[in-house]
Design a protein around this nucleic acid. Structure first.
Lengths: 170, 170
DNA sequence: GTTATATGGTTAATATGTTAGCGAAGCTCC
DNA sequence: GGAGCTTCGCTAACATATTAACCATATAAC
């Protein structure tokens, strides 16, 4: 407590650094080298993620894209319909199950990926040069350890009773 | 080329795994354990990032918040004005430089952080238990290596002449 | 001192993220 | 075979991300 002002100015620094935020920053550190390439072809980052995924699996259903590309279903709906308008993908309902949908690339998108893909790889090589191959390798390993769900379920801490922080003035 | 269909189905799998996407997935793997805590207090993830930052630095200018919290300036404008409406922060123009602004927490926000912060730390401990302290340590180290700009500027590959992929039908 | 330039925050327009909930199609169980 | 439940994609409402451009203020150049 400050003697002069009477205000408690203890360090509100938490014991742990903001890990999700570090991920965000590290991701941006990488992505900023790819963004110019992607936008050069008139795509958004998400659109490229999706095209890359379909290119790899040949065809995918929306919920598969959601999981692979880390895009939530409501977002995907919009992204896909825009990509459909751009003539990049087609959406066709499955015969067996009228709920499900198949997403495929158009020939135009195939050509686009055929041009864009190698450039992405080229940029990866440049980055690998700068970072050092060991760091890249290390990155893949650590990421996989975090993602690999080979651990028990992580419990959620008990939450205190809900107060109306944002309405009460007390 | 497939003999039956005549369609070229070569593997369009790139030589490098999608690293930014791995970051995204790993980040989500962590964040999903904190999100319930944050929303329990009626905050969004970004709002908590900002409160945590201000709590640590006592007061910040918008552009500092942008850099620390990885939020772009136009986004921040909206987030801050919403937080102002919620009575969480105050924005005051600087006397010396009428362009600049100082962002501070309100007492209400101070109390909120005082309750929320320890819960976040608690959850970190739980996660550390499940992940193992070594992995957490390893994470911090690798992230810092990626972020630390102690390397030369990373060159951008040369881009081919721009074609109108999205308008031409050729 | 006035013009040129740079900086800090903002607005505008569009795309995506996030949560809740809906509606149709498929499944289960009785 | 119909009630209840689940799955799948979607809509709606709001918050944020992203790019471009704007405006006021400050600084540099002359």
């Amino acid at each position: 407590m400050c003697i002069r002002t009477g205000i408690v100015t203890m360090s509100r620094k938490l014991a742990y650094r903001n890990l999700p935020q570090l991920f965000l920053r590290a991701r941006e550190e990488l992505l900023c080298h790819f963004r110019p390439i992607i936008t050069h072809f008139g795509l958004t980052e998400q659109q490229w993620r999706i095209l890359r995924a379909i290119g790899e699996y040949d065809q995918l259903e929306p919920r598969e894209i959601c999981e692979i590309c880390q895009i939530l279903s409501p977002s995907l709906t919009g992204v896909l319909s825009r990509m459909e308008d751009m003539g990049l993908v087609t959406r066709t309902r499955m015969e067996e199950d009228q709920r499900r949908v198949i997403v495929r690339m158009t020939p135009k998108a195939e050509k686009l990926v055929a041009e864009l893909g190698p450039l992405i790889v080229e940029q990866y090589k440049v980055i690998e040069q700068a970072f050092g191959p060991e760091l890249i390798q290390e990155l893949y390993e650590v990421m996989d350890k975090v993602i690999a769900a080979e651990r028990g379920p992580i419990p959620q801490i008990k939450l205190p009773p809900r107060k109306n922080w944002l309405t009460d003035e007390t």
